[in-house]
Design a protein around this nucleic acid. Structure first.
Lengths: 188, 188
DNA sequence: GAACTAACGCAAGCGACTTCGCGTTAAGGT
DNA sequence: ACCTTAACGCGAAGTCGCTTGCGTTAGTTC
C-alpha cells in the first residue's frame, strides 16, 4: 500500500493561502483581472505549484468558492413557513449583494461543469427541502423545491447577473410573499 | 470635414464574414475552443484585421451576438394576454434550449458591461412592455414588466445557467400560467 | 533522530496570443 | 476615368501564459 498521503502540514498551508488569495481577489477586482499570476503573487505560492495542483483557473476558483460556500450559514428555522421563506429569501439576497456576492455569480459562471459545485448545489437543495418538509409536518401547505427555485432563487440571481444590481430586502420579502400567495389562494 | 466613412462595401463583407464565423463556432464548439485564431481561419479574414477592428474576443462576441439577437423574432400578438405570455415564454425557452441557446447565456456572461448589450436588453424590455400595454388597453389586468422578468424570464435563464438543462415547453406554459394566477386571484 | 519521499520553489523554455510596419486593395469623390 | 485614403493582407517581432526538469524543503515513519 502507498506510504500514506500527507493531508496536513505544508500542503494544507499552501492550500489555505491560495484559497484565501482567490477569495480576496474575487471580492476586490473585477472578474477578469483574476489570474493565476495574481493569485501566486498575493498568496506567496509559486505559479508552478498552483498549476500542478489545480491545473486551470476554473478548477482553482471552483475549489476555493466551493469550500468558502460550504461554510455557509444554516437554513432558517423560525417556526413558520412564511418566516423561514422570508428569512431565506432575504439572506440569499444579502449574500448575493454582500461582499461575497460575486462568488455566487462567479461560481455559477465558472463552475457549471465541476462536480464539487454541483454537489454543493445538491446539498443546498436538500437543506432547503428539509425546511419545506418541516413545514409540511407542521401541517402547512408548503410548495415543492422547484417552485422555491423558480419564484425566489431564480429572480435573485437573475437580477444580480443581468442587471449587475442585486435585489433589496423588500423585494426579497415580496418574492417569498408571492410564493405563499401562489399556494394560499387555491389551497387551504 | 472628414472625407466620409465607408460603411458599405469591403468592410461590410469582412464584418459579415467574421460575424458568421463567430456564430457558427459558438454553435458548434464548446465555449472555450473559441478563439480569434479560429474565427480568422474560418472567416478567411486575417487575424490582424480582427484585432484591429474588435480588439478583444469579448468585444467581438458581444458585437456578433448582439447583431444576431437583434434580428430576433418579433413579440407575439395573439389577441389575448394569456396567449401572448404563453407564446413568449415558450419561445424564450425554445431559444435558450435551441442551437443559439448558448448565445443568450454567453451574452449574459460576457456583455454585462457592454453598452450594446445593455441597449439590446432595454429594447427587448420595451418590446415586452408593449405587449403588456396592448393587453391593458384591451382592459386586461396585465402585470408590470418586473413581474414578467421575475416570474417567467428569470426561471428560464436560471435553469439554463445553473442546471445546464433548459426548461421544456410545458414548464414554460406553467410559468406564464403562474404569472396570470398571481394577477387573477386578488385582482378583478 | 535519521532515512524516506511527497510536495514545493526555482528558472529555463515552449507555444499561443497580440501587436506593428509596410505594401496592396478597393470604396468614395471629382 | 483618375486620385485619394480608409481598410485589409502579410510577415515579423514582442509579450504573456503555461509547462517541465531538477534541486530543496519538510511531513512521515521506523
Amino acid at each position: 500500500m502507498q506510504p500514506a498521503r500527507r493531508p496536513g502540514g505544508r500542503s494544507a498551508k499552501v492550500r489555505a493561502a491560495v484559497h484565501q488569495a482567490v477569495i480576496d481577489l474575487l471580492r476586490e477586482e473585477d472578474w477578469d483581472k483574476l489570474g493565476i499570476a495574481q493569485v501566486a503573487e498575493r498568496s506567496g505560492v509559486h505559479q508552478a505549484t498552483i498549476y500542478r495542483r489545480w491545473g486551470t483557473l476554473s478548477a482553482l476558483v471552483d475549489d476555493a468558492v466551493t469550500e468558502q460556500l460550504s461554510q455557509g450559514s444554516p437554513m432558517p428555522d423560525t417556526g413558520s413557513l412564511r418566516g423561514d421563506l422570508e428569512e431565506y429569501a432575504v439572506r440569499l439576497a444579502g449574500d448575493v449583494a454582500g461582499p461575497l456576492g460575486p462568488l455566487y455569480v462567479r461560481a455559477a459562471q465558472v463552475g457549471t461543469r465541476d462536480k464539487d459545485y454541483v454537489t454543493y448545489m445538491m446539498e443546498r437543495g436538500m437543506q432547503l427541502e428539509g425546511v419545506l418538509e418541516r413545514a409540511r409536518q407542521r401541517g402547512e401547505n408548503a410548495p415543492d423545491l422547484l417552485e422555491v427555485l423558480d419564484v425566489i432563487v431564480a429572480p435573485v440571481y437573475y437580477h444580480a447577473i443581468f442587471f449587475n444590481r442585486p435585489v433589496g430586502a423588500e423585494h426579497a420579502v415580496m418574492l417569498a410573499d408571492r410564493l405563499l400567495r401562489l399556494r394560499g389562494s387555491p389551497g387551504e
